[in-house]
C-alpha cells in the first residue's frame, strides 16, 4: 500500500525527474504514487517534458561562442590599453627621475653654499693685510687686482674689517702691503708663546692653551695674531 501523499510527492518531484533523488526506497515510493495518482503523474510528465526540452535547448547552443570579430576587437583593445599603461608608467618614471635629479642638484647647491660660508668664516681664507696694521680680508681671488670682483661692496668690506679688527701686528715683523697675499691659520698655543708675540701674559696662566688665528705672509712668517679665547 502506497503511503505517500500528493503534497509529499510535490516536494520531491523535481529531483525525481532530474534523477537527483538518491534514496532508492523514496524513489520507488514516489513512482508508485505517480502510478496511482493521475494528477501527480501528469505533474511528473510535465516536469519531465520541461527537463527534456531544457536538455534539447542546452544542446542547441552547446559549443556556441562569441563571433570572431569580438576576439579581434578585444585583442586590439588589450594592446591599446597595454600601450597606454606602458606610456603612463614611463611618464611617471621620468617624472620621478627628474624630481630626484632636481633634489640632488638643490642639495648639492645648498651644501656647496654652506661649505663656502664655513670656508670664508673659519677655514683658511687667504687675506690681504693693509699697511696700517689692521686686517681687512677676503680670499685671494676676491682681492686680486685683476679680478672682476676686486672691489667688493662696502658692506662686505666693513664686515670683513670687523671680523679681522682684533688682529694685533706681531712686533718686529714685516708689515704687509695692501694687495699682499697671506693666509690665516688657526692654532692652539700656550699663553707663554703669546708673550713671544708681544701679548701681555699672566705668568700664573703661562701654560694654559688658547686658540688663536695667526695671519701668515707669503714668506711663511707671522704678521699678526688674534686671540680667540
Amino acid at each position: 500500500m502506497n503511503l505517500m501523499k500528493c503534497r509529499e510527492f510535490e516536494e520531491i518531484v523535481q529531483p525525481l525527474v532530474r534523477l537527483e533523488l538518491l534514496d532508492v526506497n523514496l524513489r520507488e515510493t514516489a513512482l508508485e504514487h505517480a502510478w496511482s495518482c493521475p494528477r501527480c503523474a501528469a505533474r511528473m510528465a510535465e516536469l519531465q517534458a520541461i527537463f527534456d526540452a531544457s536538455e534539447a535547448l542546452a544542446a542547441s547552443v552547446q559549443g556556441e561562442g562569441a563571433p570572431e570579430r569580438v576576439e579581434v576587437a578585444l585583442l586590439a583593445a588589450f594592446r591599446q590599453e597595454r600601450q597606454r599603461r606602458t606610456a603612463w608608467r614611463q611618464t611617471w618614471e621620468w617624472a620621478g627621475l627628474t624630481v630626484a635629479a632636481a633634489g640632488l642638484i638643490v642639495a648639492a647647491w645648498v651644501s656647496y653654499g654652506r661649505w663656502r660660508a664655513e670656508i670664508s668664516q673659519t677655514s683658511n681664507p687667504e687675506v690681504a693685510f693693509n699697511a696700517s696694521g689692521t686686517a681687512s680680508g677676503d680670499t685671494r681671488t676676491a682681492l686680486a687686482p685683476d679680478s672682476p670682483s676686486a672691489a667688493p661692496s662696502a658692506d662686505a668690506a666693513n664686515h670683513e674689517a670687523d671680523a679681522l679688527a682684533d688682529f694685533v701686528p706681531v712686533p718686529y715683523g714685516e708689515s704687509m702691503e695692501p694687495g699682499d697675499a697671506g693666509m690665516v691659520v688657526r692654532v692652539e698655543l700656550t699663553r707663554a708663546a703669546l708673550g713671544l708675540l708681544g701679548y701681555p701674559v699672566d705668568q700664573a696662566k703661562a701654560t694654559q692653551v688658547v686658540q688663536a688665528d695667526v695671519l701668515v705672509g707669503e714668506d711663511g712668517w707671522p704678521r699678526a695674531v688674534r686671540v680667540l679665547q
Binding site: 510528465a45 519531465q48 520541461i50
Partner: peptide, 12 residues
Amino acid sequence: SRSLAGKWGGRT
C-alpha cells in the same frame, strides 16, 4: 499539467 506533457510527448 497533462496538456503540456501530451503536447510535447512527455515520457512518463
